[in-house]
Simulated scan of single mutants.
Amino acid sequence: MVAGLYGAGALIAPPERVDRPYFDDTAAQLGVIREQFRQLEEYLAEVELPPSAGGKLAELMELYGALLEPGWVADVLATEPDAVHALSRGIRLDVPECVNTYNRTRWWNRLTPGGESPERHLERQLSVLYDEAERVTADLREAEARRQQTHTTYLEDRGRS
């Protein structure tokens, strides 16, 4: 009987609570991304790129830098995890991969010319990344516009009460 009561108590007792894992908050992630951005800038300063791609890369890096600049823009960025992810992926993976594959492919093209030029691929890749960064910026601007509209509606509703 005691064993039965013990078994019944074990079945109806709540399970042991396991603490959820701790993940860095988005603001802390932005600090890491800023440091990675600085490393990327140092790397890009050492790499030889064609002038046609250099302009698009400069525009892309300027946009990334503006989004990461400490202040209210970064605060808005920190509220959008998808935007932070897109920015992080661009800085940590996409831009370095574009530049590295360009340099490797350019070397191979010197040995066996032909096919589509590595410069053209690099320009296309950087254009796609720039377009993505512009979409992130537009989404952040739209989120701020929605916040403003919501606050206006709140104030108008409050004034009617």
Results as ranks from 00 to 15, higher is better:
Met1Thr: 11
Ala3Gly: 03
Ala3Val: 11
Ala3Lys: 09
Gly7Arg: 14
Gly7Ser: 13
Ala8Ile: 07
Gly9Ser: 06
Ala10Leu: 14
Ala13Gln: 08
Pro14Ala: 09
Pro15Ile: 03
Glu16Asn: 15
Glu16Ala: 15
Arg17Gly: 08
Asp19Phe: 08
Arg20Gln: 14
Pro21His: 08
Phe23Asn: 08
Asp24Tyr: 10
Asp25Ile: 15
Thr26Ile: 14
Gln29Gly: 05
Leu30Asp: 06
Gly31Cys: 11
Gln36Thr: 09
Gln36Arg: 13
Arg38Trp: 13
Gln39Tyr: 15
Glu42Met: 12
Ala45Ile: 02
Glu46Asn: 06
Glu46Leu: 13
Glu46Asp: 10
Glu46Phe: 03
Glu48Ile: 04
Pro50His: 02
Pro50Ile: 01
Pro51Val: 03
Gly54Tyr: 01
Gly55Arg: 10
Lys56Gly: 10
Lys56Ser: 13
Ala58Phe: 04
Leu60Ser: 08
Glu62Tyr: 02
Leu63Glu: 04
Ala66Met: 07
Leu67Gly: 02
Glu69Asp: 13
Gly71Asp: 05
Trp72Pro: 06
Trp72Ser: 11
Asp75Pro: 03
Val76Phe: 03
Leu77Lys: 03
Ala78Leu: 06
Ala78Gln: 03
Pro81Ala: 04
Val84Tyr: 00
Val84Arg: 00
Val84Gly: 00
His85Ile: 00
Ala86Asp: 11
Leu87Met: 08
Arg89Tyr: 10
Arg92Gln: 12
Asp94Trp: 05
Thr101His: 07
Thr101Pro: 00
Thr101Ile: 06
Tyr102Gly: 00
Asn103Phe: 05
Thr105Val: 12
Thr105His: 09
Trp108Gln: 11
Asn109Val: 10
Asn109Trp: 06
Thr112Met: 10
Pro113Lys: 01
His121Tyr: 11
Glu123Pro: 00
Glu123Gln: 13
Arg124Ile: 03
Tyr130Phe: 07
Tyr130Thr: 02
Glu132Pro: 01
Ala133His: 01
Glu134Gln: 11
Glu134Cys: 08
Arg135Ile: 01
Val136Gly: 00
Ala143Asn: 09
Glu144Lys: 12
Arg146Gln: 09
Arg146Asn: 05
His151Lys: 11
Leu155Met: 15
